[in-house]
Design a protein around this nucleic acid. Structure first.
Lengths: 218, 218, 218, 218
DNA sequence: TATGAATGAGTATTCATTCAT
DNA sequence: CATGAATGAATACTCATTCAT
């Protein structure tokens, strides 16, 4: 099973949109080329020259469509951020029901699929992440969407939890989801993707459930 | 409570080691200065010039001690990698006993403390880690120490687990530990550090324990 | 009489080739500028900065056309090497006839003319020629063209000569031709150029002729 | 037969002069080391660091004995220049006698022997040779000693020769002697050294003798 | 007399961005 | 719309020389 089987397939390449105006096609070609180069060389090695070569256009044209190199990358990241925001918004309610378990697994699958489909951009995003960089701020905002959504579910399930605890637990889970997928996309972790989703779903449930328990002894 | 209260306190500054030879002092000063600059500007914005200014020395001196900028950073990363390797080696056995719970919490505390104490270097490490970079390889190797150690504990506790499942679960936990701490050090997550440790310990236990459960329904 | 009167005159300056594309003009301007600077300061004192200033262009532009400083010099040397190869190929047959004598003198004149016209590059070539340098290898190959050509003529005239002796004698003559011209271009030897050619032609003939003599007594 | 068999053997190494004061030994060691490095890397690649390492001493010590790098090289070149001056002064008289022939051959042998024995320095000298460099001036002065000496012999033999012609012919011969030996020491010409001397002696005689001839036809 | 750490001026090279065509 | 030549600021790195010990 591949990620693409469930998630919306990767966007069509520019050339498949003959309806776009010439300028729009060029812009799309540049974005595609940037992703390709990002995939091959990683963010910090990307040169405008690489991108325009891959897009079979010129430096001058590049600056016709993007204010500068960062602007292009930002566009890509914003696209991905929007996809993640959608995922965050679609987090199912959690309860003990079987339906809920199935939905959560499906949701994690979606999350992982976006990670995988957009791996080049996700990796670039991680590479940038210097404090102060606008990309970091965007990352923080996406992160908080997930944390808030998950925190809500935890609070719903465990009304006795303080907001702080719920948030903290939610952050813990998001960290796990995010980083485990990152391990997969960087090749640090080689594993069948269904197994990864399964493992993450199980762990997520375990963590959420553990909130009910008494505090562990010190 | 601060991280330093438990973990070995951060090394004294170069000037506190009058016993070092002049050259060794200079080298130490450069390393310290690099950490300071790293903290302020992040890896990719570091200039040799910044480092030598912070170390109150000259360009020539820098190249007396380090082949180039990357070599210095590599040295720092290797130091931190060694610290993490020690942590990985010290992972306690896990069982249902109270002692074990306490030890795990303490261990996570240590892990988090290194993360915190070495935050500038850890962040630089994350920023570098492009695939193919030697730093990425080192990261992978440290990661696998943690995964192996945790996998062992899981297998010991759940002999019925396949190796693959144990590894996957272990990776999931490491991802959570690593990334949650990263959220803290980048300021994405603002929380009392004891609470973070508590949350991570609880989650780790929950995940490990969840391995015994029957597979969740699909 | 100047060298130019006989040999093909020195190439027109870049500005005289409005037919060249802009880029080709710039490249030509850089080559010309390099020769000019080489003339003034000698190879080891040449700075990229000098060249771009003389060419009234920028550092960036320099690297648009040449991978580095050495590459530019190499291009110049290869041009000159090709000219010398042509000269070597044009060595006339030698016999006792008057026609032959005249041709040889003309040939030496050509050789000297190239030396003179390309003096800056020839001098740079000499300065570089450290063993192992590619320029030295090129020098060796050009040298051997001359030695082979002259050796052939000697063998034709003196079939009783061993190949080794012919080669050695040829090398001796080439050394004389090359170095005498070098003395002239460096100003070590100040003499009317016709007289130099005359002297070299006479010496060459004398050396070739001396091969027939019995071995001198020991 | 090796060059050393006839010429004064190469100077003893520093360590063989225990009678020298410590300082004098160090100085000698530096000079020796410089020659060794020159041999290995050629003039322009010589670093003070290489020399002091080879001499097993320190940078500070280097500057105790030599004002700067050039001064050391200049010392070496001056030594060699003095040797060549001696050679020039010892040029035998030339006439048609057998004794004269033998003496010339012996003299060329000496010349070649110094070239060979001092090859590293000679090569460095050639590499420097930028116009304006003091080494070039010294070269010019040594050259002129040879030219004057040879010119005298030519004039003695051919009183009808103008001074200019004699000088020019002499320069031609010196060029041949110098450059042929250079070809040998750089490996451009691989030949038995006796054969080289033989060839040079024969050529020199031929050139000198050719002065009596009528001018060749135009 | 010797050391070797420190210095900093000097130089090559890269690459995002501009602009004339 | 598109081009690609030109730009120059930014930056890493070298190495002869000095100087405190």
């Amino acid at each position: 099973m591949t990620w693409k089987s469930v998630s919306r397939t990767v966007g069509p390449v520019a050339s498949e949109y003959p309806s776009l105006s010439r300028g729009e096609q060029t812009r799309a070609r540049l974005l595609e080329a940037a992703v390709e180069v990002l995939e091959r060389k990683g963010y910090h090695a990307v040169r405008v020259d690489d991108i325009v070569k891959a897009a079979r256009t010129s430096h001058g044209t590049f600056y016709l469509y993007f204010a500068n190199k960062e602007a292009l990358i930002r566009d890509l990241i914003e696209e991905v951020a929007a996809e993640f925001a959608q995922i965050a918004a679609a987090l199912p309610h959690l309860d003990q029901s079987q339906a809920s378990v199935v939905q959560l697994r499906r949701w994690i699958h979606e999350f992982s699929a976006v990670h995988s489909r957009r791996s080049a951009v996700v990796r670039a995003w991680t590479e940038i992440a210097a404090p102060g960089d606008p990309a970091a701020a965007l990352g923080r905002s996406v992160l908080s969407m997930f944390v808030v959504a998950l925190g809500d579910r935890i609070t719903a399930l465990h009304p006795e939890c303080t907001a702080a605890t719920a948030t903290l637990t939610a952050a813990t889970i998001v960290a796990m989801l995010e980083r485990t997928n990152y391990y997969v996309l960087t090749g640090h972790l080689r594993s069948d993707q269904d197994a990864v989703v399964e493992s993450l779903a199980r762990a997520t449930y375990a963590i959420v459930a553990a909130q009910t328990d008494d505090r562990p002894p010190r």
